[in-house]
Structures are given as structure tokens and as C-alpha cells.
Design a protein around this nucleic acid. Structure first.
Length: 118
RNA sequence: GGAGCAGGGCAAAUGAUCGCUGAUCCUUUCCUUUCGAGGAAAGGGUGGGAGGAAAGUCCGGGCUCCGCAGGGCAUGGUGCUGGGUAACGCCCAGUCUCGGCGACGAGGAGGAAAGCGCAACAGAAAGCAGACCGCCACGCCUCGGCGUGGUAAGGGUGAAACGGUGAGGUAAGAGCUCACCAGUCUCGGUGGUGACAUCGAGAGCUAGGCAAACCCCACCCGGAGCAAAACCGAAUAGGAGAGCGUUUGAGGGCUGCCCGUCCGAGCUCUCGGGUUGGUUGCUUGAUCCCAUCGGUAACGGUGGGACUAGAGGAAUGAUCAUUGCCUCAGCCUCUCUUCGGGGGAGGAUGAGGAACAGAACCCGGCUUAUGACCUGCUCCAAAU
RNA sequence: GCCCCCGUAGCUCAGGCGGAUAGAGCACAAGAUUCCUAAUCUUGGUGCCACAGGUUCGAGUCCUGUCGGGGGCA
């Protein structure tokens, strides 16, 4: 598996998977995102995105999704194993962040988790 | 130079690295096999990959199903004329009215002498005439006025008050009479396919507004919508309750109702339960570009060329560099001058900005959001 | 994607199709009753009728366009 790609099997595709992660997973809040994650028993991580329709138009929704996917693609090896299902919920103000700001904010989340668990 | 009007195309470009999507070709591995092959995963190569509005879903179609849908009514829509078109509420050309000094723009622009209606407050009176203050005549009188009659010029109210100006006329007045103007109706001539324009004659002196509330007239319209629909596969089950009915016909299809017609022995509703996968539809089409012909134009004919997204929890991105555009800041050079300074042009540096916005079956429009530019024209100012 | 519905006082809604006064209940404020509160009674304030344009003498209402909210589908 290449280190920096984003394949369909790394996505959450089912509504039930989203519900399971949101119900049973851990929750972390950052200023612009809500992050839920749950160990899935697979050797890789999986990503799911929730961007509500009521806050943005379609262009800003796509922009947020692309930037979060860019973070996952480039920095997923920094997320500690075992494999996790991650659901990221965008909050208001996220459309004003640049790509580097998104990356900085989300890296900090999993760096904290790494330090706490080890 | 300032203000404005109309039209047109574009949606910063190039390169590098990483990444996404589906098409096609090759390699490897695994599975199935009717030995032709098919499917899945990974890697690599090649050439594609959002818009002028993709938006709002406001109209019109194609397409699919409803037994290819017949007649009438209701509802709904359109509403100057003539063209264009698959069709339209769209577009083009024209007429009339209104707005603007002008370039030009806007118009839901049939009918109120078919009917039912409406007009608060104010005002005497709000639709058919009528008379509050007035004006005039006569009578009475305590000479302030009062009564009867005639008037509608003037005042006042209102969004709107029953033609306007002048002259004659009269007790005072009045289309009462006349001249001109505006407007209505009828007839005729000319131009135009037509809306209409224009000219002449006559009638008659007023006929008001609102149909974007009902209505009348003319024309148009079957319904739903790709979550339409077709096929494959899986799963659960023929459950419980209520209502109606089996030829005297329940119920259903042709939206709402009626007629007509067809199917017809079970149908409808509620509760409960199960799936909630895959393929097709899915992009070659009223398509785009160029030339030419017809037409004022919208558009149409002919010939040649091109293939230009097809996702499905939803693909076009991120970073860096260079060039170009705009704004701001100070610096340098040139030029004009009313010499306090100001205006214009060019150069380099730094910082910031680059809009509106994302296909979801596909087209033709409309509306709304929005960036910088180009072309033509009008008015004003200055100069000649 | 497609098809519908609704925006009126702080809240829930009438009024709207037939045009000229903006209303009801709860809530809020003041007063009375009460030793005080609750309850009751009396009085009152409260609205750019979602926004913009048009028709009209005059739009909450009629017409058109935006904005916001809600619902349904195999």
C-alpha cells in the first residue's frame, strides 16, 4: 500500500458505520471540527466526513471535504495504529481555514491522543 | 475628462511534485469454468475530466410509465399585430402609450354602451344625477334676514366632480348658440398582410375609473415524473384489525366531476415484519464549429469537419515557482503650471487582492448572483 | 434530483379568496384584593404583517421575483 493515497476501501460508506462511530467512539472537539474515532480491527484507518448542508453552499462544502481529505492523505501514517474509523464533523467557520491550518489543527488532535495513550 | 446608453466575447496563463475519477491497453495474483472466456484486487502506460450562470425550479419540450388517453364541464394558463420555433409565458420585427435633453428604455397593451359589483375619510353630491356656500328674480319683513322658484359660471372637499378657451346671449346663467382645440361614435377614401396611421363628411355635445377581485370573449392544456421505468438477485411472509362487494356488479385505469369505454373477484386503509443490493436508463444531441445561400432580424436550407464529464456517502484538488492584471504606500525620471503645491506618463521595491459559484436524465428559454475587459453611441465641460 | 406547504405581537395562531379598524389566547408591565405570594379582577404597552418591485386613490390581502423554514419520494 502506498503511503499517500486515498482509496475507496479507506472510506466509510455505510450509514450504520457512521452511527456506530458516533455512538461508541471517542469524541474530541477542536475550534472548527468535531472528531469521533473508534478502533475497527483493520490494518488501516478509514475516514468519514459529515458536512451539514445548512451552513454552506456546495462550493464551500466541497472545499472543506477536499482539505480534510488532503490532511488524511498526507498525514495518516502519523495516526497511531491499530486502525481506526474516523468521522470528522465540520463546524461553522471551517470554510475560512486554509489547507495548512486544517492540517495543523487535526495533527494536534492525534498527537495528543498518542501522548495520552502511551 | 465626467455622467450615461447599447452590444460582444472571456472567466489569468505556464511549469514541477503529490493525489482523485471513470475509459482503454499491458503485466502479476486469486476465484469460477460449459475450456470460448468471465469476474475481483494491485501496479504501470496513453489520452479525457464542471458553468455562464451548472443556481432558483419559474415556463416549454424530448424520454419513460399509467390498457396510447374519446366527448363535455370545472379548474388553470396566455392576452396589441405579424413572423421564428419541437414548443413556450421565450426570441425577432413593427404599432400605440409612457419615461428620458439625448443615445435609448419600459409596458400583464382584448372587453367597463353583456352582467354582478367596489370607492374608507372628506365632501352638498361618488355614478345618476343632484345643489352646501354662492348668483339672479319675485314675495314678506323688525331691513340682520326668511320663503318660493331659476341656475351651475365661481368657492371649498377629494385620488377622481359630468369637456377647455374666447365671443354672443341672459334677470343670473348654461353646448343655449357660434369659432377653434381635445375627445367619442358612424360612414367613406388612401397606405399597410395586420395592429394602426392619415384624410374627408356626418352625428352628438360627454360617454368617468377599477377586470393584477368576480366575470365575458378568443386560444392552449390528460396525469405523473429518471427516486420515471425495465431486468437480475436476495430476504421475509402469505400475519392481525376495519370497511365495501361477487352479475341488481365492489373496486380500479383514462388527474377533479359527469358521460362514454375497458378490466373485473376480490379491493382499499391501518398496524406489524423483511429487503433496503447490482445492471440498464446514461450521454450522438431540436449538439458544436466553419463556409455559403434566403431573410431587415429572430431563424432556416445546403456542404464540410469535430466527439466534448458521466459520478453515485458523490471525482477537477493541494503546495511551490515564474509571468501578467488591479489597489495602497513611499522612491526615482520626464512633462504642464496660476510656482503654496497639484495633475499626467513611465520604471523598480514591498504588502494585499482576483468575483459569483460545483454537473446528477437531457435540451430551449426566463429570472437571480457576479469579476475584469473590448467596441459603438449620447449629453455636459475644456481645447481648436 | 423532483414534487409540495408555510413565514403576522416574546410564543401559538386567526384575519387573507369578496381591499380602507391589525385581532384572540398565553406571556409582560402597572394598579386593586391580601400580612406577603399564588389565584382573581381592572387597565395598558407591544407589530416596517419575511424582503423588494409592480397594479391601484389605497396592499397584511392581488401579481411577480428574492430570502428563510418545514415535509414527502424506491
Amino acid at each position: 500500500m502506498a503511503e499517500c493515497c486515498f482509496r475507496p476501501h479507506e472510506r466509510l460508506r455505510d450509514f450504520n458505520q457512521y452511527q456506530q462511530v458516533k455512538r461508541a467512539g471517542k469524541r474530541v472537539r477542536t475550534p472548527h471540527f468535531g472528531v469521533n474515532f473508534l478502533t475497527n480491527g483493520l490494518p488501516h484507518h478509514r475516514l468519514g466526513l459529515i458536512v451539514q448542508k445548512r451552513f454552506w453552499n456546495a462550493v464551500n462544502r466541497n472545499r472543506i471535504k477536499r482539505r480534510v481529505r488532503e490532511w488524511f492523505r498526507l498525514h495518516k501514517e502519523t495516526i497511531p495504529l491499530p486502525g481506526k474509523d474516523i468521522v470528522i464533523i465540520a463546524r461553522q467557520g471551517a470554510e475560512r481555514l486554509s489547507s495548512t491550518e486544517v492540517t495543523r489543527e487535526l495533527i494536534r488532535v492525534f498527537a495528543k491522543q498518542d501522548g495520552r495513550s502511551s
